[in-house]
């Protein structure tokens, strides 16, 4: 009888004793090492998309939420979520939203396999960043898209896909404008454009006109014809590359007619 009592009582006593000691220890520790966490941070974090794309400039969504609540970042810091989410975040914090137009990425190169010349056949690692290290990439144009799909693989929202001709295509519905592709591209070819911008010079080359003419059939020469014909003065030349200012552009289409290479294009229906 004593044996059975021992066999049942001792383990219960020991485990119970240990549990009580540990519970007390943790209880005291949680008081001593108590860290206040603002409940707003949790609420904001739940509203954010949770893709940890880094488009806001913080390490992840939870970091971004903490910064928004602390006032170090604006309520619109998250570029990946829509204005309705921004409004909800502002509501939690009792702030108002300043409306900013949504941006989407656009691949600023049209130098497809048949239109842009190649210097050699690249057979290395399938990654643009690696290809750039090998003698500056296989494309003659040092500003052009290498088409190995680093941006396609890095897009956290699956908005990019590789086109048949070796230039990535942006799905404008899926693109959130987080800018991950802009950051990973070794040549900075994707650019964030306001979602309403319709006319754009789809080229990234800052080479002088004769160089571009030799290397690519569809590159912006930097000739300045578009600048001359534009009645609204919406086009500027920046180092042999024409840039359209969407706030001035009226979609008259004169630049598209006159462009000798077709680099300037209407990317959205009027």
């Amino acid at each position: 009888m004593g044996g059975i009592l021992q066999a049942t009582i001792y383990p219960i006593m020991v485990m119970g004793g240990l549990a009580v000691v540990f519970a007390l220890m943790l209880g005291i520790a949680s008081r001593v090492f108590y860290v206040y966490v603002d409940p707003k941070v949790k609420a904001v974090e739940e509203l954010l998309p949770g893709a940890n794309c880094g488009g806001c400039g913080f390490a992840g969504c939870s970091d971004c939420a903490a910064a928004i609540v602390a006032g170090k970042a604006p309520v619109t810091a998250c570029v990946a979520c829509g204005t309705d989410i921004h409004e909800q975040i502002a509501q939690i914090l009792g702030k108002t939203v300043e409306v900013k137009e949504k941006e989407v990425a656009h691949i600023m190169c049209q130098g497809t396999k048949d239109k842009a010349k190649r210097r050699f056949q690249y057979m290395g690692i399938e990654d643009c960043r690696a290809a750039v290290v090998v003698a500056g990439g296989d494309k003659e144009c040092q500003y052009g898209c290498l088409g190995l799909g680093t941006c396609v693989r890095s897009c956290p929202f699956g908005a990019l896909s590789m086109g048949e001709n070796g230039i990535p295509v942006v799905d404008r519905d899926k693109c959130t404008g987080c800018g991950t592709c802009v950051r990973v591209c070794p040549r900075g070819i994707p650019k964030l454009l306001p979602v309403s911008q319709k006319i754009v010079t789809v080229c990234n080359s800052h080479d002088a006109p004769p160089v571009v003419k030799k290397l690519c059939e569809v590159g912006c020469l930097g000739c300045g014809i578009c600048k001359k014909v534009c009645p609204e003065k919406a086009i500027e030349l920046e180092n042999f590359l024409s840039v359209v200012d969407p706030s001035k552009c009226t979609l008259c289409g004169k630049c598209i007619e006159k462009c000798p290479t077709g680099a300037i294009r209407q990317i959205l229906p009027g």
Binding site: M15, F22, L26, V35
Partner: peptide, 19 residues
């Protein structure tokens, strides 16, 4: 008993590091 100890200790370490 060992798992209990380890779990409690990890919890404790977590609290201390967090602070």
């Amino acid at each position: 008993a060992f798992i209990l100890t380890i779990a409690v200790f990890v919890q404790l370490v977590e609290m201390v590091i967090k602070k």
